[in-house]
Nucleic acid binder design. Sequence first.
DNA 1: TTGTATGCGTTATCAT
DNA 2: ATGATAACGCATACAA
Lengths: 385, 385
Amino acid sequence: MRAVTEGQLDSAAGRRAPVTLTEVAARAGVSRATAARALGGYGSVSDAARALVEAAATELKYRPNGMARSTRTGTTSTVGVVVADIGNAFFARCVRGISDAGRARGYGVIVVNTDENVDAERAAVRLLVEHRAAGMIVAPAARTGGSHLAEAQTVGIPVVLMDRRVRGLDTDRVAADNRGGAKLAMEQLIRAGHRRIAFVSSAAGPHGAPPGQHPPVDDLVTSGGDRVQAYLDALSEAAVKDPGYYLRLCPFGEDAAYTATTELLALPKPPTAVFASDSVIALGVLRAVHDAGASVPEDVSVVAGDAPAWSPVTTPGLSSVDQPVYDLGHTAMNLLLDRLNEPDAPWRDVVLPTTFLSRGSIARRARGGRRRLIHQEPLTIEQSG
Amino acid sequence: MRAVTEGQLDSAAGRRAPVTLTEVAARAGVSRATAARALGGYGSVSDAARALVEAAATELKYRPNGMARSTRTGTTSTVGVVVADIGNAFFARCVRGISDAGRARGYGVIVVNTDENVDAERAAVRLLVEHRAAGMIVAPAARTGGSHLAEAQTVGIPVVLMDRRVRGLDTDRVAADNRGGAKLAMEQLIRAGHRRIAFVSSAAGPHGAPPGQHPPVDDLVTSGGDRVQAYLDALSEAAVKDPGYYLRLCPFGEDAAYTATTELLALPKPPTAVFASDSVIALGVLRAVHDAGASVPEDVSVVAGDAPAWSPVTTPGLSSVDQPVYDLGHTAMNLLLDRLNEPDAPWRDVVLPTTFLSRGSIARRARGGRRRLIHQEPLTIEQSG
DNA sequence: TTGTATGCGTTATCAT
DNA sequence: ATGATAACGCATACAA
């Protein structure tokens, strides 16, 4: 049991095959069964035998083969996480919540990207099924066509939907109150006198939708669709004619949002406010506004449907709907692990409240066309449902 | 082969046990061996038999059991990724690069968080060893004490270090040219007349280091340590006396950076510029500057050692060292997979170039104490070695 | 308490 | 080309 030399770690020792339970048993002079019991902590083992086995195990640096164990038990203690883009701060933070909740209960996380592509999602689910993941948490890429998810469930791998919904699929689910949050944001804008309010979202899939057309809101990825719905409802309620006029559903990514916003600002009657569906969109919107030589909020007010970490450091601060992103993941994992314990419990649909963080990016819009800043105070908070 | 009803997916079908190869063979009326050959694409199988087997497989929705396969083959096609915080945009983007590179070559990714905690890292590595991961990519939490990593290598699981280094450990490695990037940033500041330049970093571990003391730079997590080194070197070269005076090594997280910056600004002779080691730090720095009633860059210039996605939307834009973050992960995965193919190839140490993105957050500092803005132009780029 | 023996689902070898 | 059979490492029912 010599200490590892600090100067040079013992990686020159060469590759040796992993130690197996059989070797440990042999070293300890007991049978495999006894060794297994001693290390697995089940059945009954004499203290003497246990000591021998444990000594042998540590001495040989025994590491149980999780794969072999899983073959035998039929399941693993890893859960799959299927998201559109782990590089996106939103999902990254979700995954952190998932990971933390999982670790606390002894589960690891295997992450798969779909890039908002349903085929990739199918492949991801297949991969996870083949891995015999204990369950999976999915932010589905599409509102429909969830047969692969249903299939996973039928082979005993429970699915929890996160942030989004799939039509006709019975699962546990967790999402933020996107509709309520968007409603709060719209109320702020309308109360501040805005009527020409644009909405930029990438919820429409990689190809976007032609501007000016009423899109099939019900088919949008849920989190985005809910926000769009709240947006349209709010406009209708404010008696705005042609509520879809300033709605832009563009492909995913910051650049598409940039383009859409640039076009919006070039309109004969440009919007006086822009609602960015999420923070990636917001980045594109803000860049576009800036590059168009306009400023926030004097020329155009901006709100975001998700509060990025950087919302305090823009000038002015970005007013946004704050979702409990970490909790989204945390809750998803807990829903999943609960389901593993009680496979037949009724489905649960958890909606986490959102808050509206009012910073400086909304200007009051006077009827006569003059504009005045509101919210000089650093931060106000309102909470949804 | 009925189509799944759109209205209600077939999850009410109940849980059935996963189909095994044996069942497929039986259904096809052949032996397990033949079925295995047909599905596995090896050996020789008659076209007739292959057709039968494939039909049976699709009909029964056969999904090979990856665990069983792994016990047999001794390895998996998943690689472990060990990072401090998957919720951090930097690591999230790394992981995206890793994931993409892996998928292209048929490998999945299992992510484990360490929270910058070495014990958690040890546990993570143990987990991955037990899972018989094909390899692992690690952004180590500490500069020393990498025996667990050496151990993984000796049981045949290659390790690739990403972004950081571990003393005395032979591995493949990839990192950005942090020293070169930091040097560029310092040159900008010094050329602009700054001498009282602070450096805020969380590289010192969870407890931070007392301010004003020369810390053991060599023990810092490498990426941070390299930047500190470049910082100190640049100050010395500019003949600044007591180069460590404005160096702050604080605990991890935005809040600690906020506190450290607040204290710096309250100094009798506050710094005229602050170098934020990474973008989380930068967030804290910018908030602190703002809350102190100061403005960037008139009162204090700010640069960051890593260019966040939001660097264009602060006012002014945040000048920062741009690292090829995605490529860091992409390269790490490719190094790992290459190593799997050629276990005895010489170690590779890849250093990716960094660039300096000069936006508006640096002000020229006249000798007499007057200040003038530079860089009215939107963006200039310089590249490191 | 301990050991023997068998099974998990796959891969792979060996005759046939 | 195919089938019988062993092996992977671990878990466990059953016998001792």
